[in-house]
């Protein structure tokens, strides 16, 4: 079977579900709004990082990206929808690749627009505090943010395929991000640096003190995502639909 028709079909599936389009809108709105607020709140914190401030909306915004990835997959696990999909496209891995592409491309495009809008909105509030940022750093943050959000959406998609449930996926990832990484984060030492969210967010920071740099951090997140996608592929291939 050819890939393009299957991809077109998967994209139509996403386009025709209002809730999924709403999630992409939420990704844009939440990220930009929180970055703008962060930029406008003046701080005397010695750890203040103007670069991360411009993209700080990613912390709430990533939940929208995760929801998008999980829900785009979980629509297949209601009432035998997957059976219908695999009846139309019996090559399961080809179908899965099309599904992942149909998730990744819109998230990347929306995330790119989001990251740019966040930068502009936050800089409006930061004023002279952002003057020290180089063009290179800002490009890195915008590109890195787009890639990071895409990777988190795909991570959720892979996990949702493995768990065959959007609810199970969200109740695994969201507490993980909010509790494991955010609350006990600094206490847990260097291991936390390798968590998918912490590692990937290094690309948004101006200075790096740990083992990982901006791109190697994003690479670690990419490995997590690859592992989740492979686990999903393994489950999809092996199990009865």
């Amino acid at each position: 079977m050819q890939f393009a028709p299957v991809l077109r079909s998967e994209w139509r599936k996403i386009r025709t579900l209002p809730s999924l389009l709403g999630t992409l809108l939420a990704l844009f709105a939440a990220t930009t709004a929180f970055s703008a607020i962060a930029g406008a709140s003046t701080t005397q914190d010695p750890d203040f990082d103007p670069l991360f401030t411009t993209q700080s909306g990613v912390l709430p915004g990533q939940i929208a990206a995760i929801s998008f990835g999980a829900m785009a997959v979980s629509q297949e696990f209601h009432n035998g929808a997957l059976r219908l999909s695999l009846t139309a496209v019996p090559r399961r891995l080809g179908w899965y690749a099309a599904k992942a592409t149909a998730i990744a491309v819109p998230v990347f495009l929306v995330a790119s627009a989001t990251a740019l809008a966040s930068l502009i909105a936050a800089r409006a509030g930061l004023g002279s505090a952002a003057d020290g940022l180089s063009v290179g750093e800002q490009v890195r943050a915008v590109a890195g943010c787009s890639v990071y959000l895409t990777l988190t959406a795909l991570l959720a998609a892979g996990l949702a395929t493995l768990l065959r449930s959007g609810v199970a996926t969200l109740s695994l990832i969201i507490p993980f991000i909010l509790v494991v990484s955010f609350v006990i984060g600094d206490a847990a030492g260097t291991a936390v640096e390798f968590m998918p969210d912490r590692a990937g967010q290094l690309v948004l920071q101006r200075t790096h003190e740990g083992i990982l740099g901006p791109w190697s951090g994003l690479g670690v997140t990419a490995l997590w995502t690859a592992a989740a996608l492979l686990a999903g592929a393994w489950s999809l291939r092996r199990r009865d639909a």
């Binding site: 299957v6 077109r8 139509r12 025709t16 809730s19 629509q75 035998g80 929808a81 059976r83 139309a88």
Partner: peptide, 21 residues
């Protein structure tokens, strides 16, 4: 399974998704 069509999609879109593939 007649329930396989997603409730939030229109009947036409449901068929257009399948047709495209």
């Amino acid at each position: 399974d007649a329930q396989a069509a997603h409730g939030s999609r229109t009947g036409r879109d449901h068929l257009r998704v399948l047709a495209a593939s």
